[in-house]
Design a protein around this nucleic acid. Structure first.
Ligand SMILES: [Mn+2]
Ligand SMILES: [Mn+2]
Ligand SMILES: [Zn+2]
Ligand SMILES: [Zn+2]
Lengths: 137, 137
DNA sequence: ATAACAAATGCACTTCCATTGCACTTACTA
DNA sequence: TAGTAAGTGCAATGGAAGTGCATTTGTTAT
């Protein structure tokens, strides 16, 4: 079991207070978060810092970006074994039309998609929208 | 064979010069267009008019919106038989990373996606990114 | 320990797209 | 033809993303 510090260092990210806090915030969340969510959680910190932190995390494959169609990009921690490096977001994402939350369905891989002759598929974004388990019961 | 006028009227859209022009513009295009694309094509017209026209078309299921992940929403005419009303975008969309164009692959329906217990799927957005046929040859 | 350097942070500002309020014009309807 | 509703143009706003630069913090070498 490695500490967050060790994880960051293993990805060539220098450990800072801000980064540890943001990492912990993401880890506690069960849903994908927007930059505004982070902003609201850390009102004392500057938006730019939060923005650049999440960008650093993204570059180093600590988080992956999710485009759920709301127009606002969201982020979620990569699971161990997530290989965003190779092909982004192999798993699908679910966006709840009721509570507006988006979650990673890491167990649900994206099926192979056929494209017409001449087209080359490099990656796939699949978002299912509907009602989440919390809202449907 | 119905005229564009008849089509618009059948969808409860009043016919205006602007609307006819914009419809024709969309019909000629083989790719999804942004609001800016329309703007560039009709420099004399106001942005707002174009914006509201496309919104009207969208409401009345003349066009459907496409979120291809570029951050800019695109629009394309619905094919006859396209039932956006019921479930949006049953077909998949292809975004070319080279020429930046997005097209509807209307023949390619989205496969049935399984979601976990408690989740209710209402619709699905599927975007494949890669190299289009024009750019790959 | 301290100086020198590099990276991280904070502040201000910018850009781009989407959206709205309101005045004016055009088109339908009585 | 007058009255009314819808469409259009202009101006302004808001939100999110992104950048330049000064300042602070942390790392490294002397
Ligand atoms: Mn995910
Ligand atoms: Mn389409
Ligand atoms: Zn929900
Ligand atoms: Zn292309």
């Amino acid at each position: 079991m490695q500490t967050i510090e060790q994880l960051l260092e293993s990805k060539d990210i220098r450990v800072t207070v801000m980064r540890l806090l943001i990492y912990k915030f993401l880890a506690e969340k069960q849903v994908a978060v927007t930059l505004s969510d982070i902003e609201n959680a850390f009102e004392k910190a500057d938006r730019t810092t939060l923005y650049r932190t999440i960008k650093t995390f993204e570059e180093k494959d600590i988080v992956h970006q999710i485009d759920d169609g709301t127009g606002i990009t969201k982020y979620a921690l990569c699971e161990k074994g997530c290989n965003c490096e190779i092909e982004t977001d192999l798993h699908l994402h679910f966006h709840c039309n009721n509570c507006n939350e988006t979650i990673c369905l890491t167990e649900h891989k994206i099926p192979q998609i056929k494209v017409p002759d001449g087209f080359v598929s490099e990656n796939v974004n699949l978002v299912v929208k509907g009602i989440c388990d919390k809202c449907s019961r």
